[in-house]
């Protein structure tokens, strides 16, 4: 679907994207994650053929980038903008038309979408007379009006009210169910955790980690469990696969030795007392990101990484 090969982009003095390769398969939601300034927007702009890479190649649908291809992609830029003096319906139709769909099709789909988001009676009002939340809705519609196979959303949740956040999540899920490919770029890693099937973590223009979200979580998380246990905790502390136990009062956090199966300690606990709560601890994406960056000896600007 989308393939980025050894792409580098330099701006005066600094390298925004550094020898980055990435393949996104068709279908599903792909998360392009990283702190502010990691190079996500630069990557997306290169994919949209708005700026050119200094080195490397990008192809979409197996073809090199071209103007025609822009019609098959929907793009919601981080910086939202609309023609404020235009009427809502006119605006949608115009953006549809420059994406290559005919005026009549654009009219028909715009009407349907406006109805769907409850803005039908606003269609002849100017964009500037709409509230910010309404404008955001119009902007989403314009991103998908031409029914693209690939949708790229750059920081889609920033500045959204809770209602629109939910609506956008629904739209993303609908698109995924319809077999479309969605690329989500954001620095709010934990917010998109539940949406993404695959992710790529980026820091300072370089790829830190790529893969299926569940695989990554499994690899990174399975050696910590949290347990609420009534019985003698010494039974747990002396269990050979346990490395360390931290008592939080009600719950115990147990770090297992490498390669240990969390089910082993659960069985052992059930044999020696009563288990009220048991959870295989998941590291949040935010924690994974920090762990990985540190592992590679990189630096993190903690302010730019927002986990929760």
């Amino acid at each position: 679907m989308l393939s980025i090969e050894k792409v580098t982009k330099r701006y005066d003095g600094h390298t925004a994207v550094d020898d980055l390769s990435l393949v996104i398969e068709p279908g599903g939601v792909f998360g392009l994650l990283g702190p502010n300034g990691a190079g996500k927007t630069t990557i997306i702009r290169m994919v949209m053929n708005i700026i050119e890479p200094d080195e490397g190649r990008i192809s979409i649908f197996g073809e090199p980038l071209s103007e025609k291809m822009k019609e098959k992609v929907g793009y919601l830029p981080e910086e939202r903008g609309m023609y404020r003096k235009m009427k809502v319906l006119e605006h949608l139709v115009f953006l549809g038309e420059i994406k290559g769909i005919s005026s009549s099709v654009a009219h028909e789909r715009s009407r349907k979408w406006l109805e769907k988001v409850g803005l039908s009676e606003w269609r002849d009002k100017t964009v500037e007379s709409l509230s910010k939340g309404m404008q955001q809705k119009i902007q989403f519609i314009s991103t998908v009006l031409h029914e693209p196979q690939l949708v790229i959303l750059d920081e889609p949740f920033s500045g959204l009210d809770p209602i629109n956040t939910e609506m956008l999540k629904d739209i993303i899920t609908d698109m995924k169910d319809a077999g479309k490919t969605v690329v989500l770029s954001t620095h709010m890693m934990d917010q998109v955790e539940k949406l993404c099937g695959r992710i790529c973590l980026i820091n300072k223009g370089k790829k830190i980690l790529e893969g299926g979200l569940s695989d990554i979580k499994m690899k990174m998380s399975k050696n910590v469990v949290s347990i609420r246990f009534s019985g003698d905790r010494r039974h747990l502390e002396t269990w050979p696969e346990v490395e360390k136990v931290v008592d939080f009062g009600q719950d115990l956090s147990i770090t297992l030795k490498g390669g240990a199966d969390p089910n082993g300690i659960l069985r052992h606990a059930l044999d020696n007392g009563r288990v009220e709560r048991f959870e295989i601890g998941e590291m949040s994406l935010h924690d994974i990101f920090i762990a990985k960056v540190k592992e590679k000896g990189g630096e993190i600007d903690e302010e730019d990484v927002q986990g929760r």
Partner: peptide
């Protein structure tokens, strides 16, 4: 004006 209201990037994602 288009630069300021940021509509330009939407436009560039559709045409040259």
């Amino acid at each position: 004006e288009e630069k300021n209201n940021r509509v330009i990037e939407v436009m560039l994602s559709s045409l040259r």
